[in-house]
Amino acid sequence: MTVYVALFSGINVGGNRIVKMAELRAFFGDQGFGDVATYIQSGNVVFTAAGEGDAAALCKRIEAAFEARWGFGSRIMVRDAAWFENTVAKNPYPEVAGDPTRLHAYVLEREPTAAEIGPVAERCTGAERFEVIGDVLYLHAPDGLGKSKFAEVLPRVLKVPATARNWRTVLALVEMAKGA
């Protein structure tokens, strides 16, 4: 069995597109996945699947079944547990990892090109700093994500679909995956 984490975008935000975590856990069980657990209300699901599956194929399968079940789509990123451990190990800002609400990992649908990163770097003019390593954009927002003007424009400028999680969530998902 391989341990995976599915990260949903845009559910349970501002009272819209509500999906109860108990229902989401049951949904994953109905899809044949095992050891299903969720973390907070923003759509983080740890689960196991038989064999060495393809995360991209799992993602498409889950997205289609989710839309059929709830009647709306959600971009979902699926990564295996090793990917999360690697993300933590490669954190370019270990000095701020102790303040997990100021450090964020944007899980990118794919690794961006240098041409796609260029405009992002031009927009990062405040106190924030970022680094892209593979398909992860690490963002240190010293004043918090809610006050970051850079984080506000990041999705429009980068042009690579992503979903962000604060470092506390990343670490919690790693621990949950280890326990699955």
Rank of each mutant, 00 (worst) to 15 (best):
H104A: 09
F33C: 10
A177F: 02
R61T: 14
Y138K: 01
I117V: 15
D80N: 13
D30K: 15
S74W: 02
V120H: 02
A64R: 13
R165C: 07
S74F: 04
R75T: 10
P155I: 00
L108M: 10
I11H: 08
V153N: 07
A55Q: 06
R165F: 07
V19R: 07
M176G: 04
W83V: 05
E116T: 04
A49Q: 03
L173W: 01
V19D: 01
G134T: 04
I76E: 01
E109V: 03
I76C: 09
V120F: 03
A105E: 00
L173H: 03
P161N: 08
R25F: 11
T38Y: 10
V88T: 01
E111W: 00
F33M: 14
A50R: 14
A50I: 12
Y39R: 08
I117F: 02
G14N: 12
E85N: 11
I40Y: 11
A164H: 05
A81I: 00
E95Q: 15
V120N: 05
R61V: 05
F150S: 08
I11M: 10
R168P: 03
S42D: 11
A115E: 15
G118Y: 01
A89K: 13
F130D: 00
T2H: 09
K178A: 14
Y4T: 02
A115D: 14
R123K: 15
Q41D: 11
W83P: 00
I76N: 02
V19G: 06
R123L: 13
A81H: 10
S148T: 10
Q31N: 09
V132M: 05
Q41Y: 09
R110T: 12
V96F: 13
V5I: 13
G34P: 07
F66H: 03
F84C: 04
L158T: 00
T101K: 14
R168N: 15
D35F: 11
L145N: 07
E23M: 12
I11N: 03
V132A: 10
A105F: 00
A50T: 13
A141I: 06
V136F: 03
T87R: 01
P100K: 06
D30G: 15
W83Y: 15
I18G: 09
A81D: 04
E122R: 09
R75P: 09
A151L: 04
W83K: 03
V160P: 07
A97E: 12
K20S: 13
R69K: 15
A177D: 06
V19A: 09
G51F: 06
P161A: 12
Y4V: 01
V157M: 03
F130A: 05
A162W: 00
T2K: 13
F33S: 04
Y106D: 05
